[in-house]
């Protein structure tokens, strides 16, 4: 399998993401958000955390007009794995690939912590390798409060699109939502950072199975 990390101006978790993908066998490359190349050769596309385009106007609002986003839309429509972590999640909601919006935390301020996540969907493309009910994952955001209208929230629940919930609602998200997929289940956005929890040396490896799940999903699709 081959994966790719999209670098936006202002991305700052791109190296961490690349490191985790490489370490766990997802064979990553980097691509610039300014590129209008196709993403056909990749099985999985990762939009990393950071402050793309300074998060001017709204988080992710400018990044979604990056040239690369046309190819990301195409890949998502083809059923390829598309993952947005933190700012990547904000870009996916702004671009309409995921419903809802990430808003300022309920109590304004940057949260930098580790938090327990409940794995709400165990068979998703992103969680199938987990046996644990809950995992500990770093969070680092000021605009992480998931918001969607009541109808959308109901649809997310009914269609099993809520993959991760906060065990404790640290930012005021609706329904304790930490991560969701699209209806097809191939596009995921989440605020917490599994790529920062892959090294024994750093004391937390709960993120490893996130990447192993994706690896298993791509292998099952029979793509290489």
């Amino acid at each position: 399998m081959k994966s790719v990390v999209v670098r936006f101006p202002g991305s700052n978790c791109d190296e961490d993401m690349y490191y985790a993908l490489k370490d766990l066998g997802l064979a990553p490359e980097f691509i610039s958000a300014q590129s209008d190349a196709s993403l056909d050769e990749y099985d999985a596309i990762f939009l990393p955390g950071g402050f793309s385009y300074g998060d001017y106007l709204r988080t992710g609002a400018i990044a979604r007009f990056s040239p690369i986003m046309a190819a990301v839309q195409t890949a998502a429509a083809q059923g390829k794995i598309v993952v947005g972590i933190c700012n990547g999640f904000q870009i996916l909601t702004e671009s309409g690939l995921l419903p809802g919006q990430l808003m300022m935390n309920e109590v304004p301020g940057f949260i930098c912590d580790e938090t327990e996540l409940v794995i709400n969907q165990k068979t998703s493309a992103f969680t199938n390798a987990y046996t644990a009910e809950q995992i500990l994952v770093p969070v680092a955001h000021a605009d992480g409060r998931y918001y969607a209208d009541a109808e959308t929230l109901q649809r997310l629940e009914d269609q099993n699109q809520i993959v991760f919930k906060y065990a404790e609602n640290l930012n005021g998200s609706e329904n304790r939502i930490a991560g969701i997929t699209n209806e097809q289940g191939n596009v995921l956005g989440m605020m917490p950072h599994p790529e920062r929890a892959v090294e024994t040396l750093l004391g937390n490896t709960d993120g490893q199975n996130f990447f192993k799940s994706i690896l298993a999903t791509v292998a099952a699709q029979g793509v290489n």
């Binding site: 808003m103 300022m104 935390n105 109590v107 304004p108 409060r145 918001y147």
Partner: peptide, 9 residues
């Protein structure tokens, strides 16, 4: 209907 945390502060 949308919470405005800055307004509250």
């Amino acid at each position: 209907s949308v919470l405005d945390p800055q307004g509250e502060v």
